[in-house]
Write a protein that binds this DNA or RNA. Structure first.
Length: 883
RNA sequence: GGGCGAUUAGCUCAGUUGGUUGGAGCGCUGCCCUCACAUGGCAGAGGUCACUGGUUCGAGUCCAGUAUCGCCCACCA
């Protein structure tokens, strides 16, 4: 017998098992005529990414699905890859070169991009390596990168196709500008953060000083006043009606501006008069358009003031704000300042306050794309789990706005747009045209901008399978099945993928969208580096093992709910992995040659315990499979945990131990049957556990059982004939006798080394026979000297009693038992029973209940009442007999 | 300003379509190093299911409202 350590040591197995899986090509999937496809494309982590708990949860769920489907015989494909993450990656490389005292301009565009690729070569596979440690069974041969040749081709194809359909346009609009990243952002990339700001009231004097003192406007961004071109009031506002059309003098600048009327203005906010700054505010921009007012840009792209800001030129926007306020105050034009809470957009990459900024950008017209994507979800082609996200999706889609896709950075897919320097012609083309089709000039330049990272991500489910080529993979694996992701990127990514899928392939890209929760710390904060509340998954893997990480994570994650993590929670999984290991160790140590035939038909002379555990096993198979189908992963885990630990280890194994330990029975049929069933249950349990805990199950399967990979085993199918509720009920009765006996032993402080006898008197003749098959289990598990079951039993003297439903159970304890204490104990039992009886009787006395509740329920209640009464009566008799 | 989620044992959370006595893990109490496992075993204590109304024979579960916490969306400067 080989030595199997009594503790499961994950470090010993995980890496070698994983590389063996990889070497044997078990993750690789190709189209197969004999199999149905099951496809997931990974939400590509940023190439700069480092595995965090969100990834751990996200990828564990995907791996569970992929491994489960693979075992079910699907061509189960999980396509991995990384996202080039334009802004994020460029920022990282800029930080790196900053350490050498350099800026990107010192390199120039091409050289800088070379630097990014170098960085990617060096560090870009970190996240991939970490996903492997998580046990992810991705088809690594298919690893894609959003900047690789194929995906870049897909991006160009998508851009040109949309352009041809008139869905891409270029124009001057107010966009979200990040002054730190120096680029435009989409609305989604500039989330609003509630900010405690100030509202400044500034007086703009009339040109004709005779009129009045002036008009007071309120603003949160006084520095933008340098770009004001008008003051607007509501046409219905009586206070200002008379001033419409009058001229004001813009303080500091001295520019003459007009008072205009516009319905947009809210009479109740501030003073009811609003400064109009079309180049720095989206509303003002719209107002400017309505009134034919050109905007004046007063800032540079780094949010310093430009030449239009006069003496504030060159100053940072906040510096300028302070200066302007001071100057206004000195001139007596700053009327008042009040606290004002408002939401300010911030860059999602660097958290700098964004600046609404007028600039020339490229946009995608979204409405035509959104319409079919809305229909697809309404029709049910795509289902969200949890369902509530459907509404969120639809609400966003129905109010969708155009998507700003151009970014003023270098790292990304450059726009396939060329300009003729001679005639100004705009040419959209995959490659640089030799000559201008309009004037024939060869003086042609490419647009400097790159595309939003999400412009490649939204193509992911089909671009990774070869689109725009019509590949076999695309035909076979697309549309994919399930998308597993976090709700944070519902708009960024999920919604856009649905639109792109329908637009470019004519099909919705997936059928199910499973949105899991956000990983938080115990105080409810999102885990983030800046908060310092990170639990590093790799550290957890090193300390507790990958299976512990995976199991615990899933166990505490209810569908779509946020996950609150602390380090201690990983003990759940670690302990369970150890339990699996030790139970396997026990089974294998007791089986000769580690071999056993498949269990097959259950012999009619199989023991009660055998039939019972098989019934429970098949119920568990059914339940685990059902829960997986419903994507209730925590439920699936709970079922297998409960079955394996409690039914199998705590009861079945304990029940069969005497057979295994008794040498005289070593060659018996009984022994062989037990061995077979132990192995059968273990095998099936390991298979059910494998998607959740891939390493420990494989370690047992390969290293202890010396078999080929469990990954390729077939998922268990429940044999419904084997599920026998009668057997399960019978076993419950036997268990209740064992528990009652142990209970008395514990109450009486009788050490488990002391054996005593139990006498059972069935209430009805023949009920005793039911217990016969369980006789040995009761004797062994309750540690009895003898068990007497007798219809005509007379109650022994000085005994402890358990009054069960169909039996009276006596334990003679002469010299040990304290009669007074026993009376008290039974008295408490009566009190419990009476409490229950009161509830039932209240119900039964209620005529409405009798007449309106279903007959079945009423019958149940009546039966319960009579049983309780009967048990109370018997318990009272027992107490009396103690006198 | 809208929308969503949470509120159940000391802690962290499950709880299917309303139906007998509301579960788990951790922690706690008592006993056990019993020949797979002390990362373990046996037994136990612990709950007005946030609050107020309503529907119902019957509500943790369905409806309305309140409170607290959290999240998302939104162009009142």
């Amino acid at each position: 017998m080989r030595d199997i350590p009594s503790r499961y040591n994950p470090q010993e197995f995980e890496k070698s098992i994983y590389s063996k899986w990889e070497k044997e090509g078990l993750f690789h999937t190709i189209p197969s005529d004999s199999k149905k496809p099951f496809t997931i494309t990974i939400p590509p982590p940023n190439v700069t990414g480092i595995l965090h708990m969100g990834h751990a949860l996200n990828n564990t769920i995907q791996d569970i699905l992929i491994r489960w489907k693979r075992m079910q015989g699907f061509a189960s494909l999980w396509v991995p890859g990384t996202d080039h993450a334009g802004i994020a990656t460029q920022n990282v490389v800029e930080k790196k070169i900053a350490k050498q005292g350099k800026k990107r301009d010192d390199f120039g565009r091409e050289k800088f991009i070379d630097e990014v690729w170098k960085w990617r070569e060096e560090y870009g596979s970190t996240i991939i390596q970490q996903l492997k440690r998580l046990g992810s069974s991705c088809d690594w041969e298919r690893t894609r990168f959003t900047m690789d040749a194929g995906l870049s081709e897909a991006v160009l194809e998508a851009f040109i196709s949309l352009y041809k359909r008139g869905l891409i346009y270029r124009g001057n609009y107010i966009i979200n500008w990040c002054p730190r990243c120096h680029t435009a952002l989409s609305d989604e990339e500039a989330p609003h953060v509630d900010t405690e700001g100030k509202l400044y009231y500034i007086r703009y004097p009339f040109k004709d000083t005779q009129k009045a003192q002036g008009i007071v406007v309120a603003t949160t961004r006084p520095e933008t006043m340098l770009g004001d071109v008008a003051v607007a009031v509501n046409p219905k506002d009586k206070r200002y009606k008379k001033f419409i059309g009058e001229k004001l003098v813009l303080p500091i600048v001295g520019r003459e501006i007009t008072i205009i009327e516009d319905d947009f203005v809210d009479k109740k906010f501030g003073t009811g008069a609003v400064k109009v700054t079309p180049a720095h505010d989206p509303n003002d921009f719209a107002m400017g358009k309505r009134h034919g007012l050109e905007g004046v840009l007063v800032m540079n792209s780094d949010a310093t003031m430009n030449e239009n800001a006069g003496r504030y030129k060159g100053m940072d926007r906040f510096e300028a704000r302070a200066g302007i306020l001071k100057e206004l105050d000195e001139q007596g034009l700053l009327v008042k300042t009040e606290a004002h809470a408002h939401a300010v957009g911030h860059c999602y990459r660097c958290h700098t306050a964004i600046e609404p900024y007028l600039s020339l950008q490229w946009f995608v017209k979204m409405k035509p794309l959104a319409e079919p994507a809305i229909e697809a979800v309404k029709r049910g082609d795509i289902k969200f789990t949890p369902k509530r996200w459907t509404k969120v999706y639809l609400n966003w889609m129905e109010n969708i706005r155009d998507w700003c896709i151009s970014r003023q950075i270098w790292w990304g897919h450059r726009l396939p747009v060329y300009y003729c320097n001679a005639c100004g012609e705009v040419i959209v083309s995959k490659t640089k045209p030799e000559r201008c089709p309009e004037c024939g000039s060869t003086n042609i330049r490419q647009d400097e901008d790159v595309l939003d990272t999400w412009f490649s991500s939204w193509l992911w489910p089909f671009s990774v399978l070869g689109w725009p080529e019509k590949t076999k993979d695309l035909e076979y694996f697309y549309p994919t099945d399930t998308l597993v992701t976090a709700p944070e990127i519902l708009f960024f990514w999920v919604a856009r993928m649905i639109m792109a899928g329908i637009e470019f392939t004519g099909k919705a890209p997936f059928k199910d969208v499973y949105l899991h929760g956000t990983v938080r710390d115990l105080t409810g904060k999102k885990m983030s580096k800046s908060l310092g509340n990170i639990i590093d998954p790799i550290e957890i893997i090193d300390e507790f093992g990958t299976d512990a990480l995976r199991y615990s994570m899933i166990a505490i994650t209810a569908t779509g709910q946020d996950v609150f993590l602390s380090k201690e929670k990983f003990e759940i999984g670690r302990n369970f992995a150890n339990k699996i290991w030790n139970a396997s160790r026990f089974v294998l140590m007791n089986i000769k040659g580690f071999k056993a035939e498949p269990c097959g038909e259950i012999a009619s002379d199989a023991s009660l315990a055998d039939k019972w555990i098989l019934s429970k096993l098949n119920s568990a198979i059914e339940a685990v499979t059902g829960s997986l189908e419903k994507h209730k992963f925590n439920e699936a885990e709970a079922v297998i945990y409960d079955f394996f630990w409690h039914d199998f280890c705590d009861w079945y194994v304990e029940m069969v131990k005497p057979v295994l330990m008794d040498n005289s029975r070593s060659e018996t049929k009984e022994r062989k049957s037990v061995e077979r069933i132990l192995l059968h249950v273990l095998e099936n349990s390991l298979k059910l556990l494998h998607p959740f805990m891939p390493f420990v199950t494989e370690a047992v399967w390969q290293n202890i059982m010396e078999r080929k990979s469990i990954m390729s085993e077939a998922w268990p199918v429940s044999d419904k004939k084997t599920i026998k509720k009668g057997i399960e009920k019978e076993m419950e009765t036997i268990k209740s006798i064992i528990v009652s006996t142990r209970n008395i032993r514990s109450d009486m402080n009788i050490p488990h080394t002391v054996k005593f006898s139990v006498f059972i008197k069935p209430l009805k003749k023949g009920k005793g026979n039911i217990l016969e098959p369980g006789r040995d289990y009761i004797k062994n598990l309750a540690r009895l000297g003898d068990l007497v079951i007798d219809d005509d039993l007379k109650k022994p003297e000085a005994c402890a009693t358990a009054v069960l439903e169909d039996y009276n159970l006596f334990i003679p304890l002469k010299g040990i038992i304290d009669i007074g204490a026993e009376k008290d104990r039974l008295g408490k039992k009566i009190a419990e029973l009476e409490k229950q009886l009161r509830f039932t009787d209240v119900r039964l006395k209620d005529e409405k209940f009798i007449t309106r509740a279903p007959e079945k329920i009423v019958e149940q209640e009546k039966e319960k009442s009579s049983k309780l009464k009967e048990q109370i009566k018997r318990t009272k008799e027992t107490i009396k007999s103690l006198d």
